[in-house]
Design a protein around this nucleic acid. Structure first.
Lengths: 252, 252
DNA sequence: TCATGTTTTGTGAATGATTCACATCGTCGG
DNA sequence: CCGACGATGTGAATCATTCACAAAACATGA
C-alpha cells in the first residue's frame, strides 16, 4: 500500500465520515481521480465503504451502530480526539492496561500504537475494534451482562475476574465531576466496575473532556485522591486544572 | 414508520447489501422514487447507509468489518439463512440459551424473536448485534481473550463462568463433520469452549450447512451422541440425514 | 544515456444515478 | 362536497462516477 493511501485511510479513520471534496482539499497534491482510485483500492481491502453523494466514506467500524454519531457525541468529537491522542502518548509497550467503555476510550483505542500490549476492557466494541485494526495487542474482555446503553459488560464476578489479572495502568472515563462529589457516572453497574478497576490498578489515568466538568451524575466512583493523572482538553479552565494539580494529580 | 419501510428494512437486514434495482424489483408495486425516499428516511434513522452506484448497503451491523463478506462466506449465505430461520423456530421464550460464534450464529441472532431470553455467547459481535437490535433479550458475554480470527472469547476460566450459569439450549456451530471424526473446528480454544458448553447444556442443537459435511478440521469437539438436534439446509444429502437420524439425532 | 515497457496519474467525454420541481392521487376533516 | 395535506409518480436538470485515453513518472536493460 502506498503512503498516500495509508494517509487517506488514517484520515478517514479519524474523521469516520468524509466527503470526496474534503479529501481532495486535504490531499490537494493529487487529483480527484487519484483519490477516487485510492478509495476503490481501500474499499476492496475492506478498510472503508464508499458512499454516494460527493462520495462520502464510512469506516468499517462499529460506532455507526452504537450511536457514537449521536449529535451530542459528535459535537465534542474534537475534544475527545485531542484527549485520546494525549492519552495514547502515555501508553508504554508491554504493559497490561485497562481501557474503559465510552466514546473517548474508543478514540484512544484507535490511537493506540500497534505494539505488544495486554488490553483488558469491559467494552466489547472497543475490544473488537482493536483486534480488527491492530495485529499486536492482546485483548481481554471482561465477562458479564451486556448493558444496552453503554455497550459494556457488568459481571457480578468482576472482582474474581480481576483477581488473576494484574493491571498496570487503567484508563478510565467519567461522565461528571465536581469538587464536592468527585467523579461520577450514570449507571450503578459501571460505578461498581470502575471502583474495582481503580482499586486494583497501579496507576489510574482519568480521561475527561471539559464539557463534563461541573456536572454531577448519580453515582460517584472516585475522588481526586484515587487517581494519578487527568487527561483533559485545551478548553478546560485553568483554574480547575490548577486545583487538580494542587491535589497532587498530574494534569495533561 | 410505514409497513413498506419496515419491509425494506427487513429485506436489507437480511441481504446486508442490496442494489437499488434489486429493491425496485423486489418492491415493484412502488416506484424507484418512493424506494429512494424510504431509504433516505431509513438512513436518517440510522438503520442503514446509502452507498453509491445505485447500490445501497446496510449499515449498522458488524460483519462488514469482520469479513463476513469474504467470498466464501457470502457464497453460502442462503444456506446459512435457511438454517438460521429453522433454528430460530426452536427457540422458546424465557429460556437460557447459548449462542456460538460464527456467521451462522450471527444469522440466528438476527432471526431471534424479540422476547425474554437469556443469551450467553462467547461472540461479542453477536452479543452487540442482539443488544442493538432487540429490546428484550438479556445478553451475557463470556469473558476471556478475544481471538482475532473468530472474534470470540476464550477464557481459561470458562468452566468457572459456566458454573453459575445454567444453560438450557445450546446452539453450536461446527466447521467440519465426518462419521469417523465427529464434529470438528479449526481452533483449539474454540474446541475446549464448545466441549464445556456441550457438557453443561441440557439440549444441544448443532447448526451446520451442507458444505461442511465430509470435511475434517484439526480439533474434534463432539460426537453424534453428544447432540440432540442437527439443523442443516436442504442441500444436505438424504443419506447423511438418515444416518444422523439412525444415531438418534433429530434432523431439521 | 537512451530506448522501451510498465505503472501511475490526469483529463475530458459519456454514462448513469440522484435530486428537484411539479403534477397527480387519495385520505381526512370540516 | 370542498380544500388541505401527505404520499407518490414523472420527467428534466444536475451532478457524481466511470471509462478510455493521453501524459508523466519510473524502472529496466542494452
Amino acid at each position: 500500500m502506498k503512503e498516500r493511501q495509508e494517509a487517506i485511510k488514517r484520515y478517514i479513520e479519524r474523521k469516520s465520515d468524509v466527503t470526496l471534496s474534503e479529501l481532495t482539499r486535504e490531499f490537494s497534491d493529487w487529483s480527484e481521480m487519484t483519490i477516487r482510485r485510492d478509495l476503490e483500492f481501500l474499499e476492496q481491502r475492506r478498510f472503508l465503504i464508499r458512499t454516494k453523494r460527493g462520495a462520502r466514506i464510512m469506516p468499517t467500524s462499529y460506532e455507526v451502530s452504537v450511536g457514537m454519531y449521536g449529535e451530542r457525541e459528535k459535537r465534542n468529537c474534537d475534544l475527545k480526539q485531542e484527549i485520546a491522542a494525549k492519552a495514547a502518548a502515555l501508553v508504554e509497550t508491554d504493559i497490561s492496561m485497562y481501557l474503559d467503555a465510552g466514546s473517548t476510550a474508543m478514540m484512544l483505542a484507535r490511537e493506540l500504537p500497534d505494539r505488544n500490549l495486554i488490553i483488558t476492557t469491559s467494552a466489547p466494541n472497543i475490544g473488537i475494534e482493536i483486534v480488527l485494526k491492530k495485529k499486536n495487542p492482546t485483548v481481554i474482555l471482561l465477562g458479564g451482562t451486556l448493558q444496552r446503553k453503554t455497550i459494556s459488560t457488568c459481571g457480578l464476578n468482576v472482582l474474581d475476574q480481576l483477581k488473576t489479572l494484574n493491571i498496570d495502568t487503567a484508563f478510565v472515563c467519567a461522565s461528571g465531576y465536581t469538587d464536592a462529589t468527585g467523579f461520577s457516572v450514570g449507571g450503578q453497574h459501571e460505578c461498581v466496575l470502575k471502583r474495582a478497576i481503580i482499586a486494583s490498578a497501579r496507576r489510574v489515568i482519568m480521561m475527561m473532556d471539559s464539557s463534563k466538568l461541573n456536572s454531577i451524575l448519580p453515582f460517584t466512583f472516585a475522588q481526586l485522591s484515587d487517581i494519578d493523572t487527568i487527561v483533559t482538553d485545551s478548553k478546560a479552565p485553568e483554574s480547575i486544572k490548577a486545583a487538580f494539580r494542587a491535589a497532587g494529580v498530574h494534569v495533561i
